[in-house]
Protein backbone atom coordinates (compact mmCIF):
# COMPACT_ATOMS: atom_id res chain seq x y z
CA UNK A 1 0.00 0.00 0.00
CA UNK A 2 1.29 3.44 -0.81
CA UNK A 3 1.69 6.21 1.75
CA UNK A 4 -1.75 6.89 3.05
CA UNK A 5 -1.99 10.65 2.80
CA UNK A 6 -5.42 10.26 1.39
CA UNK A 7 -7.33 8.05 3.74
CA UNK A 8 -9.60 5.63 1.92
CA UNK A 9 -13.10 5.68 3.34
CA UNK A 10 -12.70 2.22 4.79
CA UNK A 11 -9.54 3.02 6.77
CA UNK A 12 -10.26 3.49 10.48
CA UNK A 13 -8.41 6.33 12.19
CA UNK A 14 -6.34 4.19 14.56
CA UNK A 15 -4.64 2.21 11.80
CA UNK A 16 -1.71 3.75 9.99
CA UNK A 17 -2.44 2.13 6.65
CA UNK A 18 -4.83 -0.16 4.85
CA UNK A 19 -2.44 -3.05 4.97
CA UNK A 20 -2.25 -2.94 8.76
CA UNK A 21 -6.02 -2.83 8.95
CA UNK A 22 -6.47 -5.77 6.61
CA UNK A 23 -3.89 -7.90 8.37
CA UNK A 24 -5.39 -7.09 11.75
CA UNK A 25 -8.82 -8.17 10.58
CA UNK A 26 -7.44 -11.41 9.23
CA UNK A 27 -5.44 -12.07 12.36
CA UNK A 28 -8.49 -11.45 14.50
CA UNK A 29 -10.55 -13.75 12.32
CA UNK A 30 -8.07 -16.58 12.66
CA UNK A 31 -8.00 -16.20 16.42
CA UNK A 32 -11.78 -16.30 16.35
CA UNK A 33 -11.66 -19.50 14.29
CA UNK A 34 -9.34 -20.92 16.94
CA UNK A 35 -12.01 -20.29 19.57
CA UNK A 36 -14.56 -22.00 17.32
CA UNK A 37 -12.34 -25.06 16.96
CA UNK A 38 -12.09 -25.34 20.72
CA UNK A 39 -15.80 -24.75 21.20
CA UNK A 40 -16.54 -27.73 18.97
CA UNK A 41 -13.55 -29.47 20.50
CA UNK A 42 -15.47 -30.07 23.71
CA UNK A 43 -18.09 -32.01 21.79
CA UNK A 44 -15.45 -33.96 19.89
CA UNK A 45 -13.98 -34.91 23.23
CA UNK A 46 -17.34 -36.09 24.55
CA UNK A 47 -17.75 -38.08 21.35
CA UNK A 48 -14.31 -39.69 21.62
CA UNK A 49 -14.78 -40.71 25.22
CA UNK A 50 -18.26 -42.15 24.89
CA UNK A 51 -17.38 -43.95 21.71
CA UNK A 52 -14.34 -45.46 23.37
CA UNK A 53 -16.51 -46.58 26.27
CA UNK A 54 -19.37 -47.91 24.17
CA UNK A 55 -17.97 -48.99 20.79
CA UNK A 56 -20.73 -51.49 20.06
CA UNK A 57 -23.55 -49.19 21.04
CA UNK A 58 -22.10 -46.47 18.82
CA UNK A 59 -21.86 -48.91 15.96
CA UNK A 60 -25.43 -50.04 16.39
CA UNK A 61 -26.80 -46.56 16.91
CA UNK A 62 -25.03 -45.01 13.94
CA UNK A 63 -26.98 -47.31 11.65
CA UNK A 64 -30.03 -45.29 12.51
CA UNK A 65 -28.51 -42.35 10.65
CA UNK A 66 -29.25 -42.04 6.96
CA UNK A 67 -25.91 -42.37 5.20
CA UNK A 68 -27.33 -41.14 1.88
CA UNK A 69 -28.55 -37.91 3.35
CA UNK A 70 -25.26 -37.48 5.19
CA UNK A 71 -23.24 -38.03 2.03
CA UNK A 72 -25.48 -35.72 0.05
CA UNK A 73 -24.99 -33.05 2.68
CA UNK A 74 -21.24 -33.47 2.53
CA UNK A 75 -21.29 -32.89 -1.21
CA UNK A 76 -23.57 -29.90 -0.79
CA UNK A 77 -21.35 -28.29 1.81
CA UNK A 78 -18.17 -28.88 -0.17
CA UNK A 79 -19.79 -27.36 -3.21
CA UNK A 80 -20.80 -24.35 -1.14
CA UNK A 81 -17.22 -23.97 -0.01
CA UNK A 82 -16.10 -23.92 -3.62
CA UNK A 83 -18.64 -21.25 -4.55
CA UNK A 84 -17.66 -19.21 -1.51
CA UNK A 85 -13.99 -19.35 -2.46
CA UNK A 86 -14.88 -18.39 -6.02
CA UNK A 87 -16.93 -15.42 -4.87
CA UNK A 88 -13.84 -14.02 -3.18
CA UNK A 89 -11.76 -14.71 -6.24
CA UNK A 90 -14.23 -12.80 -8.38
CA UNK A 91 -14.06 -9.88 -5.98
CA UNK A 92 -10.27 -9.88 -6.26
CA UNK A 93 -10.72 -9.63 -10.02
CA UNK A 94 -13.27 -6.84 -9.53
CA UNK A 95 -16.04 -8.90 -11.09
CA UNK A 96 -18.85 -7.79 -8.81
CA UNK A 97 -21.68 -9.47 -10.68
CA UNK A 98 -19.91 -12.80 -10.49
CA UNK A 99 -19.36 -12.34 -6.77
CA UNK A 100 -23.05 -11.77 -6.28
CA UNK A 101 -23.82 -14.88 -8.28
CA UNK A 102 -21.46 -17.05 -6.28
CA UNK A 103 -22.68 -15.70 -2.96
CA UNK A 104 -26.25 -16.49 -3.93
CA UNK A 105 -25.17 -19.96 -5.00
CA UNK A 106 -23.50 -20.46 -1.62
CA UNK A 107 -26.66 -19.39 0.13
CA UNK A 108 -28.74 -21.74 -1.99
CA UNK A 109 -26.46 -24.68 -1.18
CA UNK A 110 -26.59 -23.79 2.51
CA UNK A 111 -30.38 -23.87 2.29
CA UNK A 112 -30.27 -27.30 0.67
CA UNK A 113 -28.04 -28.47 3.51
CA UNK A 114 -30.51 -27.27 6.08
CA UNK A 115 -33.47 -28.79 4.25
CA UNK A 116 -31.79 -32.19 4.16
CA UNK A 117 -30.90 -31.79 7.83
CA UNK A 118 -34.51 -30.94 8.55
CA UNK A 119 -35.70 -34.19 6.99
CA UNK A 120 -33.15 -36.14 8.99
CA UNK A 121 -34.14 -34.44 12.21
CA UNK A 122 -37.84 -34.78 11.70
CA UNK A 123 -37.49 -38.49 11.04
CA UNK A 124 -35.57 -38.91 14.29
CA UNK A 125 -38.11 -36.88 16.20
CA UNK A 126 -40.81 -39.03 14.70
CA UNK A 127 -39.33 -42.37 15.75
CA UNK A 128 -38.00 -41.12 19.08
CA UNK A 129 -34.30 -41.37 18.41
CA UNK A 130 -33.70 -38.47 20.73
CA UNK A 131 -31.28 -37.51 23.49
CA UNK A 132 -31.65 -38.35 27.14
CA UNK A 133 -35.02 -38.83 28.66
CA UNK A 134 -36.79 -38.14 25.35
CA UNK A 135 -35.34 -41.28 23.82
CA UNK A 136 -38.12 -43.75 23.18
CA UNK A 137 -36.90 -45.83 20.26
CA UNK A 138 -36.42 -49.50 20.99
CA UNK A 139 -34.67 -50.87 17.92
CA UNK A 140 -31.03 -50.28 18.95
CA UNK A 141 -29.03 -52.81 20.88
CA UNK A 142 -26.60 -51.81 23.58
CA UNK A 143 -26.80 -49.81 26.77
CA UNK A 144 -27.86 -46.20 26.75
CA UNK A 145 -28.10 -45.53 23.01
CA UNK A 146 -29.64 -42.17 23.95
CA UNK A 147 -26.07 -41.01 24.61
CA UNK A 148 -25.26 -41.40 20.93
CA UNK A 149 -28.21 -39.27 20.00
CA UNK A 150 -27.37 -36.72 22.63
CA UNK A 151 -23.98 -36.33 21.01
CA UNK A 152 -25.42 -36.49 17.51
CA UNK A 153 -27.89 -33.73 18.18
CA UNK A 154 -25.36 -31.71 20.14
CA UNK A 155 -22.78 -31.78 17.38
CA UNK A 156 -25.03 -31.40 14.37
CA UNK A 157 -27.21 -28.89 16.21
CA UNK A 158 -24.30 -26.65 17.07
CA UNK A 159 -23.02 -27.07 13.54
CA UNK A 160 -26.44 -26.20 12.18
CA UNK A 161 -26.45 -23.02 14.25
CA UNK A 162 -23.12 -22.16 12.72
CA UNK A 163 -24.54 -22.73 9.27
CA UNK A 164 -27.32 -20.30 10.13
CA UNK A 165 -24.84 -17.77 11.47
CA UNK A 166 -22.71 -18.18 8.35
CA UNK A 167 -25.77 -17.69 6.16
CA UNK A 168 -26.64 -14.44 7.91
CA UNK A 169 -23.06 -13.28 7.45
CA UNK A 170 -23.25 -14.15 3.77
CA UNK A 171 -26.50 -12.22 3.43
CA UNK A 172 -24.79 -9.27 5.08
CA UNK A 173 -21.84 -9.23 2.66
CA UNK A 174 -24.19 -9.92 -0.22
CA UNK A 175 -26.14 -6.77 0.56
CA UNK A 176 -22.94 -4.79 0.88
CA UNK A 177 -21.67 -6.18 -2.41
CA UNK A 178 -24.88 -5.21 -4.12
CA UNK A 179 -24.51 -1.73 -2.65
CA UNK A 180 -21.03 -1.55 -4.22
CA UNK A 181 -19.24 -1.31 -0.90
CA UNK A 182 -16.48 -3.67 -2.02
CA UNK A 183 -13.92 -3.62 -4.77
CA UNK A 184 -10.69 -5.35 -5.67
CA UNK A 185 -9.06 -2.83 -3.30
CA UNK A 186 -11.22 -3.58 -0.30
CA UNK A 187 -13.11 -6.80 0.23
CA UNK A 188 -11.97 -7.80 3.72
CA UNK A 189 -15.46 -8.63 5.06
CA UNK A 190 -16.11 -11.03 2.18
CA UNK A 191 -12.79 -12.69 2.87
CA UNK A 192 -13.58 -13.02 6.59
CA UNK A 193 -17.02 -14.48 5.96
CA UNK A 194 -15.35 -16.87 3.55
CA UNK A 195 -12.94 -18.06 6.23
CA UNK A 196 -15.83 -18.60 8.59
CA UNK A 197 -17.78 -20.54 6.01
CA UNK A 198 -14.83 -22.79 5.25
CA UNK A 199 -14.51 -23.54 8.95
CA UNK A 200 -18.15 -24.60 9.05
CA UNK A 201 -17.36 -26.90 6.14
CA UNK A 202 -14.24 -28.14 7.88
CA UNK A 203 -16.16 -29.17 10.97
CA UNK A 204 -18.68 -31.03 8.90
CA UNK A 205 -15.84 -32.85 7.14
CA UNK A 206 -15.05 -34.41 10.51
CA UNK A 207 -18.60 -34.79 11.76
CA UNK A 208 -19.59 -36.79 8.73
CA UNK A 209 -17.24 -39.78 9.10
CA UNK A 210 -17.46 -39.72 12.88
CA UNK A 211 -21.24 -39.89 12.99
CA UNK A 212 -22.29 -41.56 9.74
CA UNK A 213 -19.40 -43.83 8.84
CA UNK A 214 -18.63 -45.82 11.97
CA UNK A 215 -17.23 -48.98 10.46
Amino acid sequence: MSESHTHPAHLAHHFSDVEQQRESAKFGMWVFLLTEVLLFGGLFMAYAIYRAWNPDMFYNAHKALNIYMGTANTFVLIASSVTMALSIRSMQLDKRKQTIGFLIATLALACIFLVIKYFEYSHKFHVGQLPGKYYSYTGIKGTNPHIFFGIYFGMTGLHGLHVLAGMSAIVWVLIKTVKKKFSAEYYTPVEMVGLYWHLVDLIWIFLFPLLYLIG
Partner: peptide, 20 residues
Protein backbone atom coordinates in the same frame (compact mmCIF):
# COMPACT_ATOMS: atom_id res chain seq x y z
CA UNK B 1 -2.19 -17.86 10.55
CA UNK B 2 -1.15 -21.45 10.06
CA UNK B 3 0.46 -21.29 13.48
CA UNK B 4 -2.79 -20.09 15.03
CA UNK B 5 -4.72 -22.88 13.37
CA UNK B 6 -2.24 -25.54 14.47
CA UNK B 7 -2.30 -24.10 17.99
CA UNK B 8 -6.02 -24.74 18.07
CA UNK B 9 -5.53 -28.32 16.94
CA UNK B 10 -2.71 -28.81 19.44
CA UNK B 11 -4.71 -27.65 22.44
CA UNK B 12 -7.69 -29.69 21.30
CA UNK B 13 -5.40 -32.72 21.22
CA UNK B 14 -4.25 -31.96 24.75
CA UNK B 15 -7.85 -31.74 25.92
CA UNK B 16 -8.81 -35.08 24.43
CA UNK B 17 -5.63 -37.05 25.13
CA UNK B 18 -5.24 -35.95 28.74
CA UNK B 19 -8.87 -36.64 29.50
CA UNK B 20 -8.44 -40.08 28.04
Amino acid sequence: YLTIFLTAIGFLAILIIFTM
